[in-house]
Amino acid sequence: MFGRVLAWSGRHGKLMDGLRVAPLAVFCLFMAVPYGANGPFDNGSLYIGVPGYLVLCVALIVPLLWRRDRPLTVFAILSLTCFAQWLAKIDPMPADIAVLVALYSVALRCTSRWAIAAGAVAEIGVLLVMVHWNAPTFSLFFSGSILVVTVWLMGLYASTRRRYMESLEERAERAERERDQQARIAATAERTRIARELHDVVAHNVSVMVVQADGAGYAIDRDPDQARQAVHNISKTGREALAEMRRLVGVLREDGSDRTDYTPQPGLGQLEELVRGAGVPARLRVGGPPGELPEGQQLAVYRIVQEALTNALKHGGPGVHALVELQYGGRELVVRVTDDGRGAMAPRSPDGHGLVGMRERVGMYGGAVSAGPRTGGGFEVLARLPVPGTRAA
């Protein structure tokens, strides 16, 4: 229930801001009657009447509706309004509390530098009020400062707590992603080990089939019965090899299901969808006339871009952007994935296998890949793959 209330308040921010400001507006409206009943004062201040009082209250309270999106602007507007009120020698009114509300918003949502500046402006306001309307004494200044500092510290505390909770949420999400990734890596490693063992079994069976076939070829004229037995052994060994091959394919399936996946593997045609669906804002740029690539080589390019974007999301830090570039022309296809993240400052995962996988895929086609921080900041993955149609030219 509480979570739904928070979600609803997040979707209706302006309405919630209005509800928070409503008590101050009602209090100022209630105080309009005493203000009008007191009439002009004899202390030399300017009496603006109830209409002027209401106009000034509106000028001080309405900007608070935008303090969530523009806290600095709202604080500046209210500070200037109160300064104009001081210059016009208008007595303090309940709506002046809006400056403290704006100060709280600045301390909550802005950097420490702006929070300190806003606190200093509020302190100057306390001093001006004392000089203009009261005999300045240290005790009065101290009392006013206590109120300002209390509001300021409350905003700083709320800001620190909010950042701390956001960091906890980010760590929890990162830990969950890393846990799932480690589980997938462990499962993949185990499947790979089993696949190697089954590969050895299949290779042995095929070798036996070759030997039996050679023997049958030699004995088919001299000893038909021996040749017939050899063909029978070939058939039996072939069925066993086929069964082991099915087990091998089943082990290599990621989902471990018995259903065969006939979906085509992704290629260059799916790169734009991959870039749009990446967890980081990314753009795809293609240069040169696209050439025809084998499906396996297209899959290698797709996986390289996928791994590079995953690394940018994992290690680039907040606000990272990525650029995927494909350059056709000549005898090779150049794939470059760059980001503007933390680069050399990004933490390195000791058990990461992304770069190894990239090198294996590119090495299958006689290409090369490099990855590392950029001199101007960020990270770059650069892969060069030969184009089969032009390599022999």
Rank of each mutant, 00 (worst) to 15 (best):
F83L: 15
M16I: 11
V121K: 02
V305H: 01
R283K: 09
N43H: 04
M130G: 14
M130L: 15
T81F: 12
T137M: 14
V362P: 03
E295L: 09
E272T: 00
L382W: 04
Y302K: 01
S112N: 12
T263M: 11
G238H: 02
G296E: 12
L326S: 12
I220T: 09
V210L: 14
L333C: 10
V101Q: 03
E173K: 06
R191H: 09
T260E: 15
T310P: 00
P281F: 04
A243V: 09
F75Q: 03
L100R: 03
T188A: 15
G125S: 13
K89T: 10
G377D: 05
E292W: 03
A346H: 01
T263I: 10
L19T: 02
R331P: 02
S159G: 14
F75R: 00
P34A: 12
A392S: 10
L382Y: 02
I116N: 03
H204L: 10
G238T: 03
L64A: 09
D255Q: 04
D258R: 02
R179M: 13
D339H: 05
R247D: 02
G330E: 01
G341R: 02
Q85L: 07
Y365Q: 09
V381S: 06
S349A: 14
G215M: 14
A115Y: 05
Y157E: 15
L15N: 03
E197P: 04
A117H: 01
R361N: 10
A186D: 09
V101Y: 02
E244C: 01
L323K: 03
V121F: 00
G366S: 09
G319A: 12
R222Q: 06
P92D: 05
M364R: 12
T263R: 08
C110L: 14
L382Q: 13
H12D: 13
R285E: 15
E380V: 12
T73E: 12
A278L: 11
L168T: 01
G343N: 04
V381D: 06
T188S: 13
P51M: 03
D96C: 05
L271Q: 01
T310G: 14
W66S: 13
R253P: 02
E176F: 05
T375W: 00
G44L: 07
V231Y: 04
G39M: 06
L140P: 07
T375V: 15
S235T: 12
S139P: 00
Q181R: 13
P388Q: 10
S235R: 13
A175G: 11
F27Y: 10
L128N: 01
I77C: 14
L198M: 10
P373G: 08
F2G: 11
T375D: 15
A88R: 04
A282L: 07
L29H: 00
G39N: 06
D221G: 07
V387Y: 00
A213Q: 06
I97N: 09
Q327M: 09
I116M: 15
L153M: 13
A300S: 10
G18S: 08
P224T: 02
A122Q: 10
S79N: 15
V101S: 06
R113N: 13
V151W: 09
L127H: 00
I304P: 00
A187W: 08
Q327P: 04
L252K: 04
